[in-house]
Simulated assay, not measured.
Amino acid sequence: MNTESPLSLRRRALWPLLSTLGALTALAPLAQAEGYPDKPVTLVVGYPAGGSTDLMARTIGPELSRRLGTPVVIENLGGAGGAIGAQKVASAAADGYTLLVGANNEIAIKRLVAPASVKYELRDFTPLGLIASQPMVLVASPRTGVKTVADFMKQVKANPGKFTYGSSGVGTALHLAGEMIKDQGGLFMTHIPYRGVAPLTTDLLGSNVDYGVFVLSSGLPLIKSGKLLALGTTERKRSQATPDVPAVAETPALKNIDISSWFALLGPARLPEPVAARLKKALAETLQAPEVRKKLEETGSTVANPQLDLARFMAEESAKYKRIVEFARIEE
């Protein structure tokens, strides 16, 4: 005799249907991935057009479009030091159609200096690949009269607190590079934050600020024209774009200086693995295209190794930045 209640019988009858629905739900992302991409892909850049991050996106965009077989659209969404664009991608649907071409500023540094206003973490993104890295460059205004990093250190040490250096804003990679030089060199100088490269350039040329830190691609025209003197680049080795400019680390007191601006392609967290794999493959092929490599290298960039573990790289870089932020007590 069956003693099951009517409710239990209904539950048993519904179980196969619920199991089928669960399986279909689990398979839905895979089904979507099989046809990916079937519409344009948007590359979000958290800065106005014309900057170094925008340049990266526009350099890889056409070839990435060819590799994916769909249009790739650049969306410039400036504000909050790149954080608005990064937040949009972190909150986007995990379908592979909204991606971030981001720099270390908004990916790894911003949340360290403005934890109250930045609502995303590294775990809120799917790492798809490093695009390139680029050194920064320490430059001197004409009024300083210095020619080398050694001259710079001697001048600043002899006059603690007298000299200034500028960057494109508080908590940027440029600011952190300047603070790393101060820390390791035992220097006391004042940081002047600017709202971008243009006003910093104006004040350097007008000798209203003594030193500056630029991303190499932004500083190259000024260096080549002789308007500003390049003292040293911030990666451990000299840049191929400026072989006559020493690395800051060649000065013994600053031998541990090794910091760069880097640019990566990221998607929202939980991208379906087939979509992520397709994007990783397309990016790796894009970076091997001769025309793309040529354009990137002309800006002073080093094209990334496609085998690099981006998640691990970002975690290691974040730990480095955390030490600098804590030393300099940087906050927004």
Rank of each mutant, 00 (worst) to 15 (best):
V156G: 02
K154D: 13
Q155Y: 00
G178D: 05
V149M: 10
G166T: 00
L174K: 12
D183L: 15
K154P: 04
D151Q: 05
G171V: 05
L176C: 09
D151R: 11
G186I: 10
D183Q: 15
Q155H: 00
T172R: 11
L174D: 15
K154N: 09
L176T: 02
G171S: 02
T164N: 02
T190W: 02
L187P: 11
Q184H: 08
F152K: 09
H175I: 06
T172Y: 06
M180W: 09
M180L: 15
A150V: 13
L176M: 07
G166H: 01
G171C: 06
K182I: 13
F152S: 09
D151V: 14
G178S: 03
D183I: 06
M153E: 14
A173E: 11
S168G: 08
S168L: 13
A158Y: 03
H175S: 10
A177G: 09
L187Q: 11
V170C: 01
K182Q: 15
D183K: 15
V149P: 01
K154G: 10
A173F: 04
V170D: 00
H175D: 15
F188W: 06
K162D: 04
A177M: 14
L176A: 06
S167A: 15
K182C: 12
P160I: 12
G171Q: 02
A173C: 04
M153A: 10
T148K: 10
D151F: 07
L174P: 00
G171H: 01
I181K: 08
F152G: 05
S167Y: 05
K154L: 14
Q184I: 11
V149E: 02
M189W: 10
V156A: 06
A177F: 10
E179V: 11
A158N: 03
